[in-house]
């Protein structure tokens, strides 16, 4: 298959769309995975720990 302008066009128009959709699904799964809930809740509160030095 020759690498023509049309080939690149098709690639970006079609596979680009599938890539976008697939990528979005992965992000949604990661964000709403129930096992990640605790990790995120911890993360948003953890920054208030005023311990002003690196942990051992």
């Amino acid at each position: 298959m020759a690498l023509t302008h049309e080939t690149l066009l098709e690639g970006s128009k079609m596979w680009g769309l599938f890539y976008l959709i697939g990528f979005s699904i992965c992000v949604l799964i990661y964000t709403f995975l129930p096992s990640n809930r605790e990790r995120f809740e911890r993360a948003e509160r953890e920054i208030f720990d005023e311990d002003d030095g690196p942990w051992k």
Partner: peptide, 14 residues
């Protein structure tokens, strides 16, 4: 105050 929604921050990041 913790961020309103940590998950929303992840979604908006991506």
């Amino acid at each position: 105050r913790p961020i309103f929604s940590y998950r929303l921050s992840i979604l908006s990041f991506w």
